[in-house]
């Protein structure tokens, strides 16, 4: 398939979701979600665990049937039969789910065959992808013997074997080493530059910030906000964010200790939003100037020293926290604790 390098996402809509609803018994996992993903863009789909991200991907890819709403790909409606659009899409699920008994090369060839690729074509493509993902040396080793990062890379390669126009990526870098995650991000970036539309869910806010053209936040099955990265960050740019490092006595005790301070802090400093920043650190968000001395005194009165205070540039994480009400660090930890923890 010939691809043309592009400068920016086009005007054509690659994925159009309107009023998507999915219920599991009495629970409405996705409650009327609307969004467009433009052709050639990287669209981030962010939200806390159980927000409805995976359920939305399952509906879009044909692994779940929507209870209401419409799904269109590249201008054609496929709501009642997403299977007919499956040749357009590559799917990388949140778990590396290839066949453990097959080698890396055989896994890719088998996935190519599932899309109707002929023998020589899929073998050539498999070799190309193994080279691209740095797995050529492990091509004939069983998938079961791969490291977690290698498994993840091969799973992404399997999603690309048939050169899909739309790539769904569910948590592509969760739980893998830094070097592999960086390599995957570079590959995704290159793929998108070559014209592939990418629908990405991730728990790493900085990853979304680095890769995505536009971002949607989903909370409790409802879309809270959809916008470009620049617009989202502009909304919080008027804010001041101060990060406070607290005395060592608090380190290692976890966020629950900090939580005990939240109520009294909000009472003492109305108009200032406080949140845990991981470890023994706290972030204060305010639109006014924050006088540090009263804050330091507040903690000293409770036997805690403020060892450092620094101003933080507002980021997508601040937008995420504002929209979802959940600390991004807490969400990432929950996801990493269990591989299936975040499916929703």
């Amino acid at each position: 398939m010939l691809r043309v390098d592009r400068e920016a996402p086009g005007d054509m809509v690659a994925i159009e979701a309107r009023g998507l609803v999915k219920r599991f018994g009495d629970i409405e996992a996705v409650a009327g979600v609307d969004f467009d993903v433009r052709e050639g863009e990287v669209f981030g789909f962010l939200g806390p665990n159980g927000a409805g991200k995976t359920t939305t991907i399952n509906m879009l890819t044909g692994l779940a049937r929507p209870d209401a709403g419409t799904i269109r790909f590249l201008g054609r409606e496929y709501t009642s039969d997403v299977k007919k659009a499956q040749h357009l899409m590559g799917v990388v699920p949140d778990e590396s789910n290839l066949w453990p008994e097959l080698s890396g090369f055989d896994n890719l060839c088998f996935c190519g065959a599932l899309y109707g690729m002929r023998g020589h074509e899929r073998a050539a493509r498999a070799r190309e992808l193994l080279d691209t993902f740095g797995l050529a040396d492990a091509a004939h080793r069983k998938f079961a013997g791969y490291s977690r990062g290698m498994k993840r890379k091969l799973t992404i390669a399997a999603g690309l074997i048939h050169r899909p126009q739309i790539l769904f990526l569910d948590e592509p870098t969760t739980g893998i080493d830094v070097a592999s995650a960086r390599q995957i991000r570079q590959l995704l970036s290159g793929l998108n530059k070559a014209g592939t539309t990418v629908f990405l869910t991730t728990h790493y806010i900085e990853e979304a910030e680095r890769l995505c053209d536009r971002i949607a936040f989903i909370v409790g099955g409802k879309l809270a906000q959809v916008d470009t990265l620049a617009h989202l960050i502009r909304d919080v740019q008027g804010q001041r964010v101060i990060e406070l490092a607290l005395s060592r006595a608090l380190e290692g005790l976890g966020p629950q200790v900090l939580m005990e301070f939240m109520g009294p802090l909000r009472e003492a400093f109305p108009g200032v939003e406080f949140e845990s920043a991981g470890g023994a650190a706290l972030r204060a968000h305010t639109r006014e100037t924050l006088a540090l001395a009263p804050v330091v005194r507040f903690f000293e009165d409770r036997g805690v020293d403020v060892t450092e205070a620094k101003a933080i540039r507002p980021s997508l994480e601040d937008v995420f926290v504002r929209v979802t009400g959940i600390a991004a660090e807490q969400m990432r930890r929950e996801k990493e604790r269990g591989p299936k923890g975040g499916g929703s």
Binding site: G62, L63, K84, Q86, V91, L98, L114, Y115, A158
Partner: peptide, 8 residues
């Protein structure tokens, strides 16, 4: 799941 995602 991969089999269910195949366009067959």
């Amino acid at each position: 799941e991969r089999l269910l995602l195949a366009p067959i």
